[in-house]
Design a protein around this nucleic acid. Structure first.
Length: 305
DNA sequence: TCACGTCAAGCAGAT
DNA sequence: ATCTGCTTGACGTGA
């Protein structure tokens, strides 16, 4: 069990997602921004390595406007050496990487334009993983998309669009249950026709489910992962104590987390903590996991290398 | 120096 | 009809 966190490190004074506005676009600024973002990414990964964090989600803002028509610059070629360096560090240290395209990636949209843009966005994410030299254990995760008042047909559209994707996208692309529109059951249905692996988000599952117990739900999604997909991934969060349902917690809830570990003790997976204070919660989690056989295996593997 | 309006994109649900 | 959440707050303008 590797522990991970998404996109941002609050301890380091750098971001791998510097703001870049369309109206300020210039090639110079683009190069400068990407340089900043990649340098920061390298710093974050080094921080993670020093802190036994072997799992990380790379921000989709790494390359600004990567899938936008304005982008004519061959950033893949210009930065290939830097990407390769970072990729070597990742692989040498047995780290796992995922990415999570934003809410505008809607493969099952009723608009051809939106679908087309979504595929471009997926392709950009695959480009990043390819440049890093990462294999099909590195995943690109989205939700299923819109419902449009007709889930049956919306699922059908997702499956049709997924079937048309290039194999190199399919190698990385997976879906996650969400908290209001597509629950575990819906994702499993999509998996039957597409074999797409499913990430269970434990908090979303708590918000929207068919009564499946957490441990049962994790077992069901784990069956959708093939050997080449690597260890299944689970997303974890808990409810914000004040803001109520559908709102993620700002910091890890220690008791809730211990309970989560207890319930899942007989299942192994990599765990992404979707909690606002990022690496701080990951570090707390690792302290707790020091007694958990699943995490100790990772540390042991690493010290053997 | 600081406050505040704005930022590429989609969809759903609440106000 | 407009706002908020998702996620990822930070940039740039004008005072």
């Amino acid at each position: 069990m590797k522990i991970g966190y998404p996109c941002i490190n609050l301890t380091l004074n750098c971001r791998s997602s510097r703001t870049f506005r369309l109206r300020n676009y210039s090639e110079e600024r683009l190069i400068e921004t990407i340089e900043n973002n990649l340098n920061c990414l390298a710093k974050i990964l080094e921080f993670n390595y020093k802190n036994n964090i072997f799992f990380f989600r790379i921000t989709s803002d790494l390359i600004p406007f990567a899938s936008h028509p304005i982008m004519k610059f061959d950033w893949q070629e210009y930065f290939k050496t830097k990407f390769k360096e970072i990729g070597v560090f990742i692989k040498k240290n047995s780290m796992r990487i995922t990415m999570h395209p934003g809410q505008y990636t809607v493969l099952n949209s009723k608009s051809d334009r939106v679908v087309k843009n979504s595929i471009k966005e997926l392709k950009y994410h695959v480009d990043v993983l390819d440049l890093l030299g990462l294999n099909s254990e590195s995943k690109i995760i989205t939700h299923v998309g819109g419902v449009y008042g007709d889930k049956k047909n919306s699922i059908k559209r997702f499956i049709e669009q997924h079937n048309k994707l290039n194999e190199n996208i399919k190698d990385h692309y997976i879906i996650e249950n969400d908290d209001k529109n597509y629950q575990l059951k819906d994702c499993l249905l999509i998996n039957e026709s597409t074999e797409i692996p499913i990430v269970l988000d434990s908090y979303h599952h708590y918000c929207y489910n068919q009564g499946e117990l957490l441990e049962k739900a994790i077992e069901l999604v784990n069956n959708t992962w093939k050997k080449s997909d690597g260890l299944p991934i689970v997303h974890y969060s808990s409810e914000h104590p004040l803001k109520g349902k559908y709102r993620h917690a700002d910091e890890i809830d220690i008791n809730h987390f211990k309970n989560f570990l207890k319930k899942t003790i007989n299942i192994n997976f990599d765990l992404m903590l979707e909690i606002k204070n990022k690496e701080k919660s990951a570090l707390s989690a690792i302290k707790i996991l020091i007694n958990d056989i699943r995490f100790m295996q990772i540390l042991a593997e690493f010290s053997n290398n």
